[in-house]
């Protein structure tokens, strides 16, 4: 486990994930205290868990935020793949599935 933690700077991952703004109000996950946990689960693999201000937050926003978290975190040195899990949302499973499928290499148009 110690070799994993030396390869990935968890603080940098947290900073990258926390820098993602809400598309509507333009405040970041960090500012809104919505970032819950960053976990290095394997060599180069990271899991980020977050929630939103309301469990009824419109799913398009939730998906946009989650995918941008993935994109930013996967740019952190040492990170090979990032899985993003939303919790405390009434359709958390559906949102997490859409957040984690496909590529996230291009910056989104809403930024």
């Amino acid at each position: 486990m110690s070799s994993i933690s030396t390869q990935i700077d968890v603080a940098a991952v947290r900073e990258a994930a926390g820098s993602v703004p809400d598309p509507e109000i333009r405040r970041t996950l960090g500012e809104l205290d919505l970032l819950d946990e960053v976990e290095v689960v394997a060599d180069g693999d990271v899991v980020v868990r977050y929630h939103l201000t309301s469990p009824l937050c419109p799913s398009p926003f939730a998906i946009q935020i989650g995918r941008e978290v993935r994109r930013r975190v996967e740019l952190v040195p040492g990170v090979r793949a990032c899985r993003v899990d939303i919790h405390d949302h009434f359709i958390a499973a559906d949102i997490s599935q859409q957040v984690n499928e496909g590529d996230v290499t291009e910056p989104p148009s809403w930024l």
Binding site: E24, L52, T53, S54, P55, L56, C57
Partner: peptide, 17 residues
């Protein structure tokens, strides 16, 4: 306006939780 939005969202969220 954003402050109001966030406050309302949190309050709504807390209610439904």
């Amino acid at each position: 306006g954003n402050d109001v939005n966030v406050t309302l969202c949190r309050a709504t969220g807390d209610f439904f939780r």
